[in-house]
Each structure stands twice: as structure tokens, then as C-alpha cells.
Design a protein around this nucleic acid. Sequence first.
DNA 1: CTGAAAGCGCTTACAG
DNA 2: CTGAAAGCGCTTACAG
Lengths: 323, 323
Amino acid sequence: MTIYDIAKVAGVSASTVSRVLNDKPGINARTRERVKRVLDETGFSVNESARGLVEQSSRMIGILVSDIRNQHHISGAYLIEEYFRSRGQVSLIINAGGDVSAIASPLRTLASRRVNGLVLIGSVFQDEAVSSALQAIVPDIPVVMQNGVLDLPNVSAVLCDDRGGTMEATMHLHQSGRRHVAYINNNLTPSNNKKVGGYLEACQELGMEPVLVQTCSDAEDATAQLLDANPGLDGIIYSVDFLAAGGLRVIHKMGLRVPDDIAVLGTDDSPLARLLDPRLSSIDTKLEQLSHECALLLEEMMENGGVRKVKTIACSLALRETG
Amino acid sequence: MTIYDIAKVAGVSASTVSRVLNDKPGINARTRERVKRVLDETGFSVNESARGLVEQSSRMIGILVSDIRNQHHISGAYLIEEYFRSRGQVSLIINAGGDVSAIASPLRTLASRRVNGLVLIGSVFQDEAVSSALQAIVPDIPVVMQNGVLDLPNVSAVLCDDRGGTMEATMHLHQSGRRHVAYINNNLTPSNNKKVGGYLEACQELGMEPVLVQTCSDAEDATAQLLDANPGLDGIIYSVDFLAAGGLRVIHKMGLRVPDDIAVLGTDDSPLARLLDPRLSSIDTKLEQLSHECALLLEEMMENGGVRKVKTIACSLALRETG
DNA sequence: CTGAAAGCGCTTACAG
DNA sequence: CTGAAAGCGCTTACAG
């Protein structure tokens, strides 16, 4: 079923059908009605491939997510998908996979589809290999990075002030009387590095001795060891909420009370924070705002031909029952 | 940059470039090499719109998710995306939104894109309105439903045996000595209805008095009221894990011990189950297997022209610390 | 207000 | 083994 078929039935030309289809002005109201009726009755559906070919626009954007398992990233992707779909752009959501240097393959896929814009979700994309790949494969497509920056003319960024948020969290604990606050970090992502930096800076400012733990495995083991080695600890900040879940379990098992004996803070203010018992206080990294800004920025770049911008969004503290 | 440009540089015709691009046989090895080099050097990227137009295939599949907030569904979508991408099919993941009767709009979007196949994730799609919409808009596209069935010739289904899983869970509690087991349900989805059915049937078989609670709001309130009204309760099953999180909190607050005083079971065996304290025992609804089967089935339908099939996958119990 | 024609960038018989 | 040509289903100047 093509517009020619519709044209035949409606007794007009394909051009006219196309005009009706696209709500172009300058068409006799009666003709328009007649064509519309045929369109409806036949259940006609435009072939977007053909349309994309002539319009040189796919009406699609690409969303590259660094890791599927990360609910935070998935949620960001969906927020962006929603925004664009309400504006007639469909989303191609693709999982880049763990290996950032393998980004060329998904990027080529997206390029072939001629996506009108691209958003990269996850700070791991702030990487030299990604920069080269972007430059080589999509030098002319507007790109926005969620929580990462790259110095490329077509690549904007919306950053979350992880450093400031973590500083604020540390200071908050200090203000509420804590004097021995540790930080437990997992992945060495650019985002996490900023968090750690904020923690260290706050410690210095406050005259607290920093206790930094790097764990690639289990938060429980890390917390247990930390607590064994530092009996005087009265606060722990985790680089992500789910780590704090394990931490709470260990603390509970050791017979310490939260927050009386020890305060616990997570990061991201994920849905999990509200589900834990006690409810986890967390650094809100503003996922929704971040995603929304990404969408707005990308839209702006797609329309105005791409002026690079870098925005930063402040974090806040979501205080609940753990500190 | 089109294949004509490549052809000119390589000193061949566009047909030859196309053949090289698609790894067609019957091309002089030298010519192939030469073209490949030019392809590489120029960073050529096929226009998939043009290709899709002539091939009458978009190399895309559509994935319709009923609700973004449901991590279970999102995870399913990603598992399917992964499967198809590794086979050269890109995924259009779309959030259908809460209102099932509004499914026509996303369906039309997907139809316009000429997706080669479609998967619907979420049992809420098992609905008369969805059935009509599918029939009207995509009568000829292979469709697979994840955990829902519809009686349409082009619509296959992979179901999870929610009923059996919940029966088994109820029986497990009974076997471990529980005699007063309640069930807390949230949404009235087809899937949840099966769960409730399984619970009721098990109660009958076991001679237990069923205590069924329907809550559309908070699991904590529901649990508190339930416990107040039924002091003898020694087990609760929740229709989804996150409800159990709230339940555990209330139980804890009331001074009851889990599982000694009361056993708690969730459903879906989500990542959350392992993060709660105590670790939540849960009915494993086999998300990964379900998604994988959906992908296989859809692939089969797309290749062999669509014989409808309905598969059911058994649940199992993931026993941890709560019962 | 409407239509005929060209062209978007590919693939694929058909010839040679 | 290779190329010229037609055609996939649209949109958009260009004429009228």
C-alpha cells in the first residue's frame, strides 16, 4: 500500500496525498477530507524509510548506554526516549557494553541509521578512545553526553557536580558531629573520581583524616574490613546506593546502630534508597534533571546546527534515616 | 557520500560496490580488495533508509514496554535488544505508557518504521483493546508477547507459570510449618491474577484459610493492617519484590523476627532481593529465560513466516533468608 | 489548488 | 566477473 494506491482510490495525484499526509497548506478542504478518509479507511502507514531517504532525516535519535545493569543509566535513557517520542523522534537505544574501546561498532550502526542526534549515557564515555571514534564516525552529528565531557565541536555535555555533591555530603556528616568518615568507592569511572575528589577535598577543609576504600568486589567485605581496621568510624559514604545496602547489612550484623553509632550515605538517590531499612540517605545526583537537560540541549543542537555547550547541575542531599 | 562516490574512486560501478558491501560472491578478489580499501579509507556508511526501502526490510525490531518504572520489564527489553543486535537487528524500544488502550499510537509508529518483528513486554498487553489494535495496525508482523497471550494468528507468546510458581511458594511455606500465610497483591494485571489464583488454589489444597490483601498504594500500610487483623500470621507472599521491602520494614518495626516468627516471600527474584536485610526469598519468574525464548521465537517467526506458538516456562524458588 | 517528473541511495535481475 | 538500468516509496520544486 503506497501513496499511489491511495491516490488512485481518492482520485488525486500522489503529490496531493503526500501533502495531506504532511499537513501542508494550500489544499482544497474537500480534497483534503476525501484523501484523509481514504487514508483512514485503508489504514495507510507511511514508509519511513522512503521518507527518510528523501528528507535526509531519519527522525530517530540514538541513545548509547554504557551498561545495561545500571538502572540509573537505563532510567536516563527512558526519560530521554520519552521526551523525543513526544516530539516525533523515535529512539534507538543501544547497549555499548562494558568495553568502551569497542564503541566503534554501535556507533557505526547508529551512523548507518542516520540518526539525527546522539546521547551517550555514562561517564565512562569520557575517554580518549570514545573521542577518536566519535570524531571518525559521527563528526557531524550533534552529540550530548550525560555526565561526561569531551572536547569535540559537536559534542555537548550535561554534567552533574559529583564533586560538589560529595563534598556537601561529607560536610553534612561533619556538621552533624561525625569526625571519622570513610568513603567506599567501586568503579574508577570519571564520575566516581570526581566524587572521591570531593570527599578528599572536604576532609582537608574540615581537618578530617580521609579513609578511602577502593573495592571492585563486594561492599560487605569492604565494609567489614573497614570497620575492623577503624573502630572509631562514625560515618561511611558509598559511591552508589546499592553498595550502601551491603554496608548496612554488615553494620547491622556487627551490632552497630545506624545512624546513632554510624551514619551511612549512598549516592544517586535511587529507588532502592527508599526501600532499605533504615531508609538510606543519599546524594541526589539529579538524574531526571540531567536527562531533561540532555534532551533539551540535543534538541537545540539538532535545530540550530550545533553550538557546543557544557552545563553542570548541582547535586543535593536526600536525607532519610541513615544520616 | 554514496556508493556512486565510492565507485568513482575505486574505478568500478555502483553495483560492484554494493556487492562488496554485502559480501556477495562472484567478485574478483582484487576488485573486492580495492573497493574495500576505498570503503575503509572514506569511512563510508551505508544509508539504511535506502537499503531498507529496496530490501523491504528495516532490519529493526520493535520492543514495546508497558511501564518504564518496572525494572523487570526494562531488563527484559535489554536482554532482547542484545540478542537481536548481535544478529544485525537494531531495536526500537518504546514505552507504551500506563494506558493500554492508547497502544495504537506507538504501534503506528512502529508500523511506519516497518519493523520486522515486535515484542510486547508486560502482561497488561493481554487485553482486548491491544488485540484489536494489533489486528488493525500490524496484522502481518510477527509478534511475541512476553508473559501474555492473545489469540491472533501472528502473535506468539512466552508465558511464565506464575500460577504454578505461587502455588509452589505457598506449599513451600506450608511444608516448612507455616499455617497462616497471607498474599499481598498490587496491580490487577493478568500476571498477578495468575499469581493470586495459584495462591488460592494452594490454600484450598492445603486446607489453609486464604488471606488475600489487595493494595494499590503502600505495602507498609497494607502489611501493618494485615498483621493487626491477623495476629497469628506466620507467612506473607508479595506479588512483587519491592512490596516485600516495605513489608519487611513494618515487620521489623513491630518487633517480629523474620523468618522465625513470620516468613516473607517476594516475586521476580529481582536484584533488590539480594540487597535487602535479611535477604529476600523470592519466586523466580525466570526473566532471562523468558526474554531469551521471546527472542528465539520472534526470530523463528520472522524467518519462517510466522507459525504461532505458545510456550510456558516454569518458575522456581530462590530461597534466601526470609523463608 | 493540483499534477508530472525528478531524485533521495540503495539492490537486483538482466545482459554481456 | 562487471555494469546499465529499473525500481523501492516517498517529497518537493516546477508548471500550470
